[in-house]
Every structure is written in C-alpha cells, then in structure tokens.
Design a binder for these strands. Sequence first.
DNA 1: ATGAAAACGGACCCTTGGTCCGCATTCTAT
DNA 2: ATAGAATGCGGACCAAGGGTCCGTTTTCAT
Lengths: 194, 194
Amino acid sequence: MPERKPRKDAVRNRAAVLAAADELFARCESPGSVTMADVAAVAGVGKATLFRAFGDRTGLIHALYETRLEPIRTAIEEGPPPLGPDTPPQQRVPALLDAVLCFKIDHRHLALALEGTGGDSPYRAEHYERWHGTLRDLLERVPGFGDGDFTAHALLAATRADLVEHLVGQRHTSRERMRAQLAALTARILAPGN
Amino acid sequence: MPERKPRKDAVRNRAAVLAAADELFARCESPGSVTMADVAAVAGVGKATLFRAFGDRTGLIHALYETRLEPIRTAIEEGPPPLGPDTPPQQRVPALLDAVLCFKIDHRHLALALEGTGGDSPYRAEHYERWHGTLRDLLERVPGFGDGDFTAHALLAATRADLVEHLVGQRHTSRERMRAQLAALTARILAPGN
DNA sequence: ATGAAAACGGACCCTTGGTCCGCATTCTAT
DNA sequence: ATAGAATGCGGACCAAGGGTCCGTTTTCAT
C-alpha cells in the first residue's frame, strides 16, 4: 500500500546518471579515474542527486552492473538451453561460464570498477552468490563430482575482471581464444577420469 | 662505484616502518582502514620519511610483501623437493600451489592490501610474473598438456587473496580443508584423462 | 490553484595520499 | 676532534575526491 511511485524527474535523472556512468567507465582506462563529480557533470545533475539516488559510489556501480547483467540473469534463470535450466549439467556448466566470461569481456571496465571497489569483497555481491550457487549445484549434479563449492569459486575466479583485462585488454588475447581456453579448462575439470 | 651505503638512521627507520605496517595490516579488518599517517605514527616517524623510503602507498605494500615472500621464493628457486627445482612437474605443481595458498592464508591481510591496491592490476607485479611463469613452464612439461598459460592464471586465481579471506576469514573454512580442496582441483586438472 | 512532499544542486566539510622546506643527524676528510 | 657537505628528518601544508547540508525548485494530489 505505501507504494508511493517516484517523481518523474527522479526517474529521468536516475537514468541519466546511469547512462553517464556507463559511458565514463567504458571510456576511461582506470575505473579509479572516474570521479563522482565527473559522472554528475556528464549527467547534467548535481552531485547530491547522484548520492541521493544511489547511496554512495559502490551503490552506483552495483546498480549499473545489475542493470547490464539482467539479460544474462534471465537467460540463465528461464531461457532456452544451453543456458536455461532445462540443460544437463555437463553442457550447462560450460555454457554458464562462457556467458559469464563474455559478459566480463564486454563490460570489463564496469566489472573492473565493481571488483576493485576495495572496501567490501566481490564475494558478498548478490550476483556472485547467484552464480556461485547455480554453478555449485550443477557441479554436484555431475556424477562422480564431490564437493562443488570450491571448484565453483575457482572457475569463477578464472573470469575475474582484472584477469580478463590483463589478457584481453593488455596482452590482446582475442576474445575467441580466451573463450576457448576457459572452455578447455572447464572440460578438463568436468572430465570423468577422477 | 656509486654504491653509497645508506645512513643507519635510514635503515633503522625503514625497518621500523615495515614492522609497523605489518602489524597494522595484520590487526585491522579492512586494509583500506590503515592509513599512511597511522603507519608513520606507530613507527614513530614522520610521514615524509615513509614516502621517501617507499615512494607511495603501493610501494610500501609491495616492499613489505616482497620481504615476507622471500623465504618462499628461495624455497622454490633453490630449495629441496617437492618445492625446489629438482622435482618432476606432477609433484611440483601441487607443491607450488600449496605453498602459494599457505602464504596467502597466513598473510591474507597483507595480500588483500596488495591486490586491492586498485590502481594497477596485480598481474603486473614481479612475483606474480614469477609464479605464473614457473607454473606455466611446469604445466607445459606435463605430457599431454597443451598451452599452460591460461591454466596457470586460473590456478593462481583460485588463491586470490579476497577469495581466501572470504573462505577462511569469513566462512571459517579450515586451513586444511582449503588446502585439500585446492589440491583436489589441481589433481583433477593434472589428471591424464584428456 | 495551492500547499505539502519530494527532489534538486552546488557550496561546504573532512579524510587521506602526497609534497615542501627549514632543521637535525650522520658521514668523511683532514 | 672537527668542520662541512650530504643525506635524512618531520610536521605543516596542499589537492582531490567522497559524502553532506540546506535553501530553493519541481512535482503531485486534492
């Protein structure tokens, strides 16, 4: 009942801020060099607006990240195979990891900003919990696979934003090559030979 | 010839700063909460001394890290098996990873500070290059193992400081359990069954 | 139309990394 | 021992950036 709908200038500004932040993070080289004042300026908005809407810097980054992430999330939760739920673990694990990796490659600046937040570890973010949970369950559904918890962490760690940036951004590994290598590693781990 | 030896108050202060930093990082919960002024105060030294000796914050952390790391480094480079060079890859890979993991567990606050530096990625640090290089070479010396480069990165990523902190520090996974899990993963990856 | 509630914005504050420069300490040469 | 050069010291100082305050403006419901 107390669902008061927000004022329209508020929603407009919120969108403007998200757009500005997205662009700024995508352009600049180190996420640290994007300042809140910059974002506010590009969005054509006062600094306070930005803090009122998102709480603080990490709040803004989280919100932006979550927004960009939504397509993948729904594709995983209710999409068609091989990403969706109606897929046997053996195929879904690599599919999921590939999706995560692609996302990280395409949005590596943003991911870098998120993981480099410093303060709180990336392991407490909801989306990480989601990915890790699904991955762990899938792994444990693979015959002969014991505890999937750590392996899930390890596989996700192979898609860490700064590693992606190092390989793809700095050392110019091609997107396809990196996907292939992660796929190979995944296959090796899933292989039945105890 | 131009090897002018440093003044003794300089070396004393340098040591004091390293000790202070070590203690502060070990005690406080988030590395971000230990400030340069704090370190200087605990070391009983002016702030400028600290910057003169180490350049900047990351310089101090690097120096401290490298110091604590030296025993492991020499154990790897010229120690006895299973860590030293006279070990077949199949045993040396797990040994090396275990050593790295143990170090990260024991010095996780410090490692957290180092990796969370934000500015420059951890992948440019010399010690990372060293570890990755050795690991990659070892992997490629394993029969039937193709390109070890990415796998080396992935294995090291499983020992990332914030993951260690999450598992051991937050979720109270025992040290032995984590070692066992990393060992299991390593074994799985090394297993010959293509 | 109108008044209250919500949002705005930019001046302002505060912490923190990093610098400057006059003073103290140490080393060297005699 | 001592003078003087060189090196190092320290705390006041600066700049940048995250976050807040509050008088003003916009929106919304009646």
